[in-house]
């Protein structure tokens, strides 16, 4: 997982991995958001698209949209609930990965994992600004996200996800950084404001 990423980029990657692994689409996300009472943050497909487009990793010029703390929390809760709902799929993929490793075989040769990695790679390259990443790094990112999803599907997964999101916004020691976030104009940070920055 790319370290030291803004929360909006991390959440977008988690949803991308769920989409690649369990075909979680926007309809499922919106239904869940409504069931959880978050329709104010995710009213429709356009709202969801705008939130996801706020990731600085995304193509296009939408990455500057602010994501406030409540929106981030709602998305984090939705992500962990989705992981819990697809826990069996995630577990099966992990078990296959363990089997492959115990046999000394690379994970992508196993059909479930191979399909997941392929889908993740193609979705990533289709949507992210940095589409020049080589396949092995994207495969590693997909597998890292799979491990993350597994732990987000635990009973305290929402808490773990939230802590992880916060931790990863701070730079780690040696990093696995796959993609760099878009540089934020320095002037934007120096603007005087009455309110503390809510952009996460």
């Amino acid at each position: 997982m790319a370290s030291s990423l803004p929360i909006k980029a991390q959440i977008d990657l988690i949803l991308l991995s769920l989409e690649a692994l369990a075909q979680v689409g926007s309809a499922e996300i919106l239904t869940l958001a409504e069931a959880m009472g978050f329709e104010a943050y995710l009213p429709d497909r356009v709202g969801l698209w705008r939130l996801r487009q706020s990731s600085p990793l995304r193509r296009g010029r939408h990455g500057r949209r602010k994501l406030d703390v409540d929106e981030a929390r709602a998305l984090a809760l939705i992500c962990s609930r989705l992981a819990q709902q697809h826990q069996q799929t995630i577990r099966t993929a992990i078990e296959r990965w363990q089997q492959q490793t115990s046999q000394g075989r690379p994970p992508h040769l196993e059909p479930i994992l191979g399909d997941y990695i392929d889908r993740f790679t193609s979705l990533y390259q289709e949507r992210m600004a940095d589409n020049s990443s080589d396949g092995s790094k994207l495969a590693q990112l997909a597998l890292d996200l799979l491990v993350d999803l597994f732990f987000y599907s635990t009973p305290q997964g929402a808490r773990r996800l939230w802590i992880t999101l916060l931790e990863r916004t701070t730079p780690a020691p040696p990093s696995l950084s796959l993609v760099e976030p878009e540089p934020v104009p320095a002037s934007a940070l120096e603007l005087p404001t009455l309110f503390p920055p809510s952009d996460v």
Binding site: Q156, I163, L176
Partner: peptide, 13 residues
């Protein structure tokens, strides 16, 4: 276990 999972997830090191 809690702290280990948090540390492990934080940076995948």
């Amino acid at each position: 276990v809690n702290e280990y999972i948090e540390a492990f997830l934080s940076h995948h090191q």
